[in-house]
Structure formats: structure tokens, C-alpha cells
Amino acid sequence: MLGTGIIKGLAETARNFIGSYTDPERLVTVEYPDQKLPAKENARNFPFLVFDGDDWEKGLRCVACQICEKECPPQCIYIEKSKDKKPDHLGKPQFYPAIFNIDVSVCMSCQICVEVCPFEAIKMDTAFELSTGDRFDALLLRKDHLAKSNDYYNSIHPTEAGEIDARRAEERAKAEAKAKADAEAKAKAAAAAVTEKPPDPTAATAQKTNPDAPSPEPPKAN
């Protein structure tokens, strides 16, 4: 009979229609913004800078090495190094970015800046509800907008952030242990030098062997 194919097709459509009342597989509409789809852990949207602790300027992990600026395909990152240095989580003095701008009208969310960063300083955000009324100025994100805390990073990408935190804690422990061992070794060497020298009546050496004089110590890590 002519038309059986069409009737079979209509039966299929009817099955989908009736099924959308009973089978959750068939009704796939999510009433956004009242309902939202569950966020995926690995999703990425635009980058942000991670800082440790409470003070975003002091805790910023970025050391302005400019590797992400060089590797960015559309070249949307602009960095200017600072003139002075501040200590990082291992105590070593590092530069920090005086200016760090990302032009999100150009950024294509490719994640290459995250892959090449050696300091775990830039990561991908998942926030996508970013509409703003200003077309020009608000699309250039500066350092203060980009800096978000490590707790926020842990909340959006728990697995990655957990691994990175564990690794950094290990490195810090190692660095502290090394610093302590170095300090002890130096103190021992200084004490050995003091005891081996014979007592000398001259005034020049008297100052050296004076036990009350402060002995030079290596600068302590913060």
C-alpha cells in the first residue's frame, strides 16, 4: 500500500512524543536558567591566574616568565615584568607580573597557555555566564580580574588541583628540610672553626673568638 513508510515514520514520532512523558531519555530539554546541566570537571572556558593564601598580590604564582605569552596562538596575552622580586612558595625570590592582560575577545580557549606554564600559575576557568554590556573595555581582563584563589581552583577542578597541591606541599617540605640541613651544617662548621682556633691575646682575633658576637647566619626562608 502506498504510504506504509510514512505511517511507520509517524508511528515512530508518536512513540517519541508519548515516550517523552514517561521516559527521561526522550525528554532531553533542560529548562535553563531554572535548571542547569551538571558541570563537568574537565570543562574549560577562559584562563585565570591562581594565587595561594588570602592576599592575591602576594600569593600570585605567576613569575612573569612569558612562556604563555609566546606560545599563545592568537597572542592574546600581554605581560610586563616587575622591577623587583618577591619570594615564591619555596622562598626563592622571583619576578612577578606588573601587567598581565588577556584579551578574551581574541582568546580561543585552546588551553596551550595552561599546558606550557611551568609554575602552575594559569589554569582554565569553567565560568561561562560572562555577558557584559561593555563591548570594548570589559573584554580586556587585567590581573585583578584574572586572579582567583586556589580554593576556587580546588572547587572547580578538584582532581587536578588536589594533585598540584600535593606536589607543591612535597616540594615545600623538601625545600624546608634542605634549608634546615644547610643551616645545621653551616652552624656545625662555624662551631668547629671556633673550637679549633687557639686563644690569641691580640685584639683583632679577640673580636673573632668573642662568643657573644652575633655569628653570620643564612637568611631564613619566609
Binding site: 502506498l2 506504509t4 513508510g5 510514512i6 511507520k8 515514520g9 508511528a11 515512530e12 514520532t13
Partner: peptide, 11 residues
């Protein structure tokens, strides 16, 4: 396939 492949209009 049930929806489409025997559909006379498609053919």
C-alpha cells in the same frame, strides 16, 4: 531507519 528508510517521500 524505521522513521526514514521506507518513507515514500524520501525514496
Amino acid at each position: 531507519e524505521r522513521l526514514l528508510s521506507e518513507n515514500e517521500i524520501l525514496i
